[in-house]
Amino acid sequence: MNPLLAIARGIRAASSSGSLVALGWIYGVLAALAAILTIVVYTVVSLGVARSGVAGQLRSGLPTDWLIDTFTQPGAGSKFIAILMLAVALAVVYAAASVALSGGVVARLLGSLEAGSGEREPFLAACGRFAGPMLRVALIEVVFLVVVGGVLAIVWVAGLAGDAGNAFAWISLGVLVIAIAVITGVSDVARVHVVATGDRSAVAAWRDALAHAARRAPVFIVVVVFNLVVAAAVAWIAVTLHGTIQRETGTGVLIGLAVGQVGVLGRIWVRIVALSTQASLRRLAA
């Protein structure tokens, strides 16, 4: 079986208009949450530097004076923790929303892969229909991640205690990243299984996905690594590109915001591509 074919079809499916609707939904949720955080931070910071020249100094980054004044003020600690807690809460909301939306995303991808397969179900309706099984699939994924992460943490600590050196540190980091990517890949196949078969059992979906990954191990790994490399590259490009934007003026800040959001959109699309390539591979393997 040709992994390139699976990848090519996956990318095509992820680019279809139906899938872009899914992309729009996920990005919309993340951007809305980020906007809440942005507005809160803007308000707090603006109040702190109201009518002070320090506000203008913030144009060039984080001025020392601002850092010292801000973090040595009474109540600074609790303000900072409150903002951090808000960010954590928003991230939890995103996690819940992305699980809830994943059924719709897979349905759209499968619809594109099986072009012309009848009438398209509304996006949110599909999301709702699969929300329960998708949550259970995600929980099993979390269990796997915790177990693998725990084992690697033990190996790591043991290695460090045994003075295993730099090579060990790098190799264990590599193993950890690949392990996470593989678990996510299997989990994606399980999601596809749920939508493709209508079987609402998450355990059955994971069993099927593991069997699929084992049977097609070489191709599966190629696709996983491809997705990993692309995701890392896009993330790096997004961050680097944003870093090159001069944000010393209002216009610069707006351009920075736009470029930053394009990068975020790109990262989410690459994530959908990863899901799509696994769906395509599963279909080819069937």
């Binding site: 507005i39 002070s52 203008g56 913030l58 915001l257 930053g260 975020v264 990262r267």
Partner: peptide, 26 residues
Amino acid sequence: WTERTDRAGPARLATDCGLLFEHLTL
């Protein structure tokens, strides 16, 4: 003391925080 509070400075910091949130969440 400035007659008006500069907006671009705090906006830069706030939008950067928002973007950092998006990237870390992803």
